Amino acid sequence: MNFLKVEVDMEKQNSLALALLVSLTSYVIMYGFELTHFTFSVDEDFYDNFYHTIELGRWGHAFLREFLLPEPYVAFFTMAISLIIVSIATSLAAIYLFNEKK
């Protein structure tokens, strides 16, 4: 099973970790108010709002509610998971775009 072994360059791993840390920190600073001050929106009107959100065309919200998050609404978790996913995407894009070609 030697063909499944992937060698990772430590320099690339360190730059990815640094990019992830910087992007997550900047997003937490930017969206800190939304993380700490929860307000209800249109999506929290119904207890079981899976079919309601699909009717409105909000597939991402319905996917999160069906597979990741329990009902009733968890205030902090949705914004936190969104910031983590966006930070990972931003750091991967930064590594891809600013990678020096050798």
Rank of each mutant, 00 (worst) to 15 (best):
F77S: 08
E71R: 12
I84S: 08
L56H: 15
A19V: 00
T90H: 14
A93Y: 07
M10T: 11
I95L: 15
H61F: 04
E7T: 14
V8P: 04
T36V: 14
S23L: 05
I81G: 01
H37S: 09
L83N: 11
I95W: 03
I85Q: 11
Q13A: 15
D45G: 06
E66V: 11
L83H: 03
I29L: 15
I88H: 01
N14P: 00
A75E: 12
I29H: 03
S15R: 13
I29P: 00
N14L: 10
Y96T: 09
L16Q: 04
I85V: 15
L16P: 04
V42H: 14
T39S: 12
K102H: 07
N2C: 11
I81H: 03
M1L: 07
I85L: 09
T90K: 05
L97D: 09
F50G: 09
T53W: 08
Y31N: 08
S26W: 03
L69W: 01
R65K: 14
N49Q: 02
M1D: 04
G32M: 02
S87Y: 03
A19I: 00
T39I: 12
V6T: 12
A75T: 05
E7S: 09
N2T: 07
A94T: 13
T90W: 04
R58A: 10
D45V: 05
A93W: 09
T25Y: 03
S41Q: 11
V8D: 02
L18H: 05
L24A: 14
L92F: 06
T39V: 08
T36C: 15
F38L: 01
